[in-house]
Design a protein around this nucleic acid. Structure first.
Lengths: 214, 214
DNA sequence: GTCTATATAGCGATAGAC
DNA sequence: GTCTATCGCTATATAGAC
C-alpha cells in the first residue's frame, strides 16, 4: 500500500502480489479437497503440494472455507457440450440419443465428477450454496438442453412425450441407473467405455419404447 | 463379537462389562456419525451423548474406526419390507407398482437414508467394505425382489420385459430421478409424501408404456 | 468396570526476519 | 511478498483412583 514504482512499464503496479502461485494453490487445493475431503485436507498439505509456504496460502485466501469455495467453483462447470443436443434430422433419433447418453455416462463416471459429487454430498449440510452453484452450472443446463431437444422431437413428430421436462429427467435418471450410486459409495469402479455402450443402448431402447411415436 | 458370558448362570460373573451402555454408545455414535460425518464427530461428543465416559467408549470399541463400522452396520439393514413385492393378481399391476414406488420413495427420502448415503459417499475411498455391507443388505435385496416380481408379471402375461433384472434397475432409477441427487447434495429438501404420489404415478406410467403388454 | 485428569500429536492461523 | 518458527486449540488415546 505504501508504494512506489509508480510510472514504470512493469505490470507490477501497486500490489502485483500473485504471479502464478495463486493458480498453483488453487490446483493443489482442488486436487486434495476432491480426493481427501474437506476435513481430511490440511492447509499444510495444500501449501506443500503447491510448493509455497502456508502463509502464502493465507495471503491469497483468508481462511480454509474461502479456499474451499474457490476450489470447488473451479470444478463446478462440468456440463455436456451444448452442440451434442442439436437435433440432427438427417440421423435417426436413436443415434442422437445414444450419442448424448454416451457423453453423459462418460461425464458422470469421470473421476473428476465422482469426487466432486462425493465432496458436495459430504458438505451438503454445511454448504448448500455450493450445491446450488454446482447444480445450476452443470446438471441444470444439461437438463434444459435435453428438454429442448425433446420439444423439438415432439414437434417433428419423432416423439410423443407429453411432459418434455419430465422426459428429460427420466432419460438421465435411467442413464445414471444403479451403477452410478454403486460407484459413488465405492462399491464399484466407474463405468468403462465398453460397459457404457450397451447400457446407453438399453436406456435409449426403453426411452423410445415409452415415448416413441408408435 | 468376541464375547463370552461363558457357562455361568449369573450374568455378572467374571467380566459382565456391558449392560446396556454398549447400546447407548452405539445409538449415540450412529446419530452423530450420520449427522456430522466421520471427521466431524469426536469421541468426546459420543461419550457425552451416550451419558458415559470416554474411556468406557474405548473399553467397548478399540478405536474410532471400529466404532464407526459398528455404527454403520446397525443402520445398514434399511430395506423395503419384502411383502410389498408379492404380486397380488387381484389388483391391477399399476396399483402394485405404485405402492412399491411410494414405499421406495418414502425409504430413500427418509433423513436416515439420506444421511447414511452421504456418509458412505464421503467414506467411499477409505471404507469400501462398508459400502458392500450396505448395498448387499439393502438395495440388492430390494432389486432382487423387484426382479422376481417382474419375472412373475412376465409369466402372467402382464409385462413384456425381456431383461427382468434390467427392468427392475430401470424402475428404481426412474424413482430416484434427479430429485434424489438434488437432495443428497443439499440442493433440495427430501421429497414429501404429497410430492411422491404424482412422481410415483408418472414413473409407473412410463414403466408400463415401455414394458407393458400391448 | 467405570470415571476424572492428562499425555501426545496435528491442524488452523499468526508473528517476525529476509 | 515470501518464508521459518510458533501459539492456541482440539481430538485421539491412555494413566491412575474409586
Amino acid at each position: 500500500m505504501t508504494e512506489a514504482t509508480d510510472s514504470t512499464v512493469t505490470p507490477a503496479r501497486g500490489r502485483p502480489k500473485d504471479p502464478a502461485k495463486r493458480a498453483a494453490i488453487l490446483k493443489a487445493a482442488t486436487s486434495l479437497f476432491l480426493s481427501q475431503g474437506f476435513a481430511g485436507t490440511s492447509m499444510d498439505a495444500i501449501a506443500k503440494l503447491a510448493g509455497v509456504s502456508k502463509l502464502t496460502v493465507y495471503s491469497h485466501f483468508s481462511d480454509k472455507e474461502t479456499l474451499f469455495s474457490a476450489a470447488v467453483e473451479t470444478k463446478c462447470h462440468n456440463t455436456l457440450p451444448v452442440p451434442i443436443f442439436e437435433l440432427d434430422r438427417t440421423q435417426p433419433l436413436r443415434t442422437t440419443l445414444t450419442k448424448i447418453g454416451l457423453g453423459f455416462l462418460d461425464l458422470i463416471h469421470s473421476m473428476e465428477s465422482v469426487e466432486l459429487q462425493r465432496l458436495l454430498n459430504s458438505q451438503a449440510a454445511v454448504d448448500p450454496d455450493m450445491s446450488r452453484l454446482f447444480f445450476e452450472a452443470g446438471p441444470q443446463r444439461t437438463l434444459n438442453a435435453m428438454e429442448h431437444l425433446v420439444r423439438e422431437a415432439n414437434q417433428a413428430g419423432l416423439l410423443d412425450a407429453p411432459d418434455p421436462k419430465q422426459a428429460a429427467e427420466n432419460f438421465f435418471s435411467l442413464l445414471q441407473g444403479c451403477q452410478h450410486m454403486k460407484t459413488l459409495i465405492g462399491y464399484r469402479q466407474p463405468m468403462t467405455a465398453s460397459e457404457a455402450q450397451p447400457h446407453a443402448e438399453q436406456v435409449v431402447d426403453m426411452f423410445l419404447r415409452a415415448y416413441g411415436k408408435g
